[in-house]
Amino acid sequence: CHSECLGNCSQPDDPTKCVACRNFYLDGRCVETCPPPYYHFQDWRCVNFSFCQDLHHKCKNSRRQGCHQYVIHNNKCIPECPSGYTMNSSNLLCTPCLGPCPKVCHLLEGEKTIDSVTSAQELRGCTVINGSLIINIRGGNNLAAELEANLGLIEEISGYLKIRRSYALVSLSFFRKLRLIRGETLEIGNYSFYALDNQNLRQLWDWSKHNLTITQGKLFFHYNPKLCLSEIHKMEEVSGTKGRQERNDIALKTNGDQASCENELLKFSYIRTSFDKILLRWEPYWPPDFRDLLGFMLFYKEAPYQNVTEFDGQDACGSNSWTVVDIDPPLRSNDPKSQNHPGWLMRGLKPWTQYAIFVKTLVTFSDERRTYGAKSDIIYVQTDATNPSVPLDPISVSNSSSQIILKWKPPSDPNGNITHYLVFWERQAEDSELFELDYCLKGLKLPSRTWSPPFESEDSQKHNQSEYEDSAGECCSCPKTDSQILKELEESSFRKTFEDYLHNVVFVPRKT
């Protein structure tokens, strides 16, 4: 048989008469490798580009789960590009990614509803959504962080984005990388972005840091009482949809009607710091009717980097990364020049730590249904340095008659930039024990000054392991946590139920 035959053949030295091919099969003959313009397919066939392209389009058009959109890589027609490569849609070739590779997620039936953290986790790592997304989240724990972890990498949506009755959302900033909504599939009414009845939605994105392009379709905003109209108009300008909307697409009466839409800028007039305090004062603000001013709200939190936005980490279910302080308005003076500047002394802060701070007014709604208010920009203030805590785990070892090696770990709280350490030492008198000992005694162990690591005695271990207080009263049991108490109650309830079950099964009433 021919060298490319495997198993047997019907005619000697003829690659077209093989029972099976050793390498690849091409047009009725066995070959060692697939010549151009053919590609290896499933490690035994040679196919042309049209064959591989037909497989790709067949799966793409069917949208069946589990099928493969075949691509070409290293002269092979394979189910998908290997790690580190992405497909070129024009020629199906796998090309190296520039940075992290995109991950295209194809949605069944063309859309997916995100109504819980669990459903959001199914899209973790996706960068391109081939379909439409509907966000409908009523509640949950730590929602802002969970949504950002699972949806934060999405850069492109081919269909539309719909935010509907998501009472738990305060902001859409968890879509931190969303840059493009194509609108290839539109919501009824030709809408590519749809926001309806979101009672706590206050911000779409921080438009000073976020760009969003909507290729096709219109915007729809109705019944978002805490979303200011200025935020919607800003989205029109940034996304390129200005002029597409009709009169009733953006409701003037049901958007922002319960919001404090600040239209003035508060400026800080005085800032002073110490290692654990920050004193702030800002310019006074009074609405047209000074009785509408209820006070100020001061927001602050630790910020290692200057990239904080107002609604980071917030949701309507209680999660809030900001510390909020309510401040009463100052006494009002008739003389504008003698107006008191409101302020606040922030206490209990960490030394040498940068804080993000902003302040906003708290006002009631005027009778004319106009909203007044003022808010400052987010500023960054760093507390002063102070003395560091003591170095940890000092170790001293003498390696000769004239040297001592000293080692330690950095302090747990540096409280500033540590530039150097101060080492103090003092000579001590020799131990009298060394002169009084009889060095001729056998088995004498000389006193040693070398360091030995501390260890816990058996008594201390027994005390720590004991669940009861000892007789001397030195140790006591740790208080039980809520989960331990709940577990004990469940076990007790189970024992009672099981005992009742045994009584009912074992003891049967005697027939009379």
Rank of each mutant, 00 (worst) to 15 (best):
N224W: 01
A374L: 05
R244H: 13
F290K: 03
Q403F: 05
S166R: 00
L108M: 14
H106P: 08
L219R: 01
I134H: 01
S230H: 04
F174R: 01
M346A: 05
S171P: 00
E184I: 10
T364S: 13
I114W: 01
G348P: 12
S321I: 07
V363H: 10
S173P: 02
I188P: 04
Q203A: 11
E302H: 13
Y223C: 07
G295W: 14
D377L: 01
I214K: 00
L252Y: 05
T113D: 02
D257L: 10
S338K: 11
P391E: 02
K234R: 13
V397A: 11
A356N: 01
E264S: 12
H210L: 12
R138L: 13
S333W: 01
Q216I: 05
A251H: 04
S192K: 01
D384Q: 02
P388Y: 02
S321E: 13
L204H: 01
E155R: 15
L279M: 10
T309P: 05
H222Q: 12
S116F: 06
S132G: 09
K337N: 13
A144F: 15
I129L: 15
N190I: 15
W286V: 04
S166C: 11
L279T: 01
N136F: 09
D249L: 15
L123F: 10
V397F: 12
R291H: 04
A374F: 03
L331T: 14
E262T: 11
N141D: 06
E156V: 10
N263H: 04
L133A: 02
V359P: 00
L143I: 15
W205C: 02
L219C: 13
C228Q: 05
K209S: 08
G313M: 13
L293F: 09
N263S: 09
L147S: 02
A385E: 09
L294G: 14
L265C: 06
P410R: 07
Y191S: 11
N248V: 09
S338Y: 05
E156L: 06
N190C: 07
I135F: 06
S173V: 07
C261F: 03
R370K: 10
I154S: 01
Q245I: 08
Y191A: 10
R370A: 14
D393Q: 11
L345R: 04
L196V: 14
